[in-house]
Simulated assay, not measured.
Amino acid sequence: MTTDTTHQQTERGQPDLTSGAAWMRGTIMPIGVASIPLNDWGLIHSDITYDVVPVWDGGFFRLDLYVQRFFRSMKSLRLDPGMSESDVKTVLHKLVAATALKRAYVAMVTSRGVNTVPGSRDPRDCRNHFFAWCVPYIHVIRPDIAETGASVHVARTVTRIPSSSVDARVKNYHWGDFTKGLFEAKDAGAETVLLLDQDGNVTEGPGFNVFSIKDDCLVTPDAGVLEGISRRTVLEIGAELGLVTETRTLPLEELLQSDEVLISTSGGGVSPITKIDDRLFSNGSPGELTTAIKGRYFAWASSPEHRTEIDYEFVS
């Protein structure tokens, strides 16, 4: 995972926020000094939700969709920090403006918080709270690797947490399955990992959705996955390019018979996958349709139709 560091200089005497900043309790601060209490349920129980919106060349990409999904996640988990969608957008604008970052990875987070009743185990007694943070743009797949195509290992020692236990549609920090899978993938010499469900069907990887292209048909799994905004964007671009798009069960055997494989993520957009375990795709190079989708994704990220420009003077 790498970051871009394109930024402007901060004013003399002001905190250097170019490596990252956080908004907490109405204050913007360097990310390195931000903190939550040790007994916050978000920390000790992973009772927390978040979302991430990318900033590309000075504008949020599809901001409304990311914020709407964040509020759906909070509703699902019965979290309420007492903020509106407009309030959250204002915080994100101020935060990015304060860093002067033109390409950034911006997180909005709501935690269950600290229980206000001593000894209580009732989540209704917790005081929920919102915070946000921003760092230079993150690439889930390093740009130099994404340029030529990444390798993926299919995890064998772990499956995806079932959605009956942790709803994959709610963005969460339950990464025990992903982390175990990443160790397995790195030990196997792969760049990242892909998890299956208990029936051997493809789900997702750490921070990305996966797609199969076969005979001008674009397929992505429909269960055990985050309904990603980047995933939605790729499906819309695929339709725009004349592909048949399908959201359904995707068995591993079918994925391995793909003409091309790609992943989508807010941290890097679209990246080609040229190898899954020992199976090569597109002769080990990015495929024609993947390359077209990737180019169209960044064209969309630069289009006024999909952008919310940031006022870098908006810091007070």
Rank of each mutant, 00 (worst) to 15 (best):
C217Q: 08
E236M: 09
V244S: 09
V234W: 07
E227I: 01
I229A: 00
D222R: 01
R231I: 08
L226C: 10
A223F: 00
E236C: 08
E246N: 08
E236H: 13
L218G: 07
L226H: 03
A223N: 12
L235P: 03
G228L: 02
R232E: 10
V225D: 03
L243D: 05
R231K: 08
L218C: 09
I213V: 15
P221K: 00
T247P: 06
G224W: 06
D222W: 02
T233K: 01
I213K: 04
L243H: 08
G242H: 04
T233Q: 06
L243M: 13
S230M: 13
I229L: 01
K214F: 03
V234E: 04
L241I: 09
V234N: 01
I213M: 11
V234T: 07
E240L: 09
G242D: 02
A239D: 09
R231E: 12
A239M: 10
I213N: 09
V225T: 07
E240Q: 13
K214Y: 11
S212V: 11
G228P: 12
V219D: 12
L235K: 13
P221F: 08
E240W: 05
V244A: 11
C217R: 11
G242F: 02
R231L: 06
E246S: 07
I229Y: 00
D222L: 04
V219H: 04
L226A: 02
E227V: 00
G228I: 10
G242R: 08
V244T: 15
I237V: 11
L235T: 11
T220C: 05
D222P: 02
D215W: 06
I213R: 05
C217L: 05
G242L: 00
S212G: 14
A239G: 15
G242K: 03
A223G: 07
L226F: 12
D222T: 04
L218V: 14
K214L: 13
T220N: 10
A239H: 10
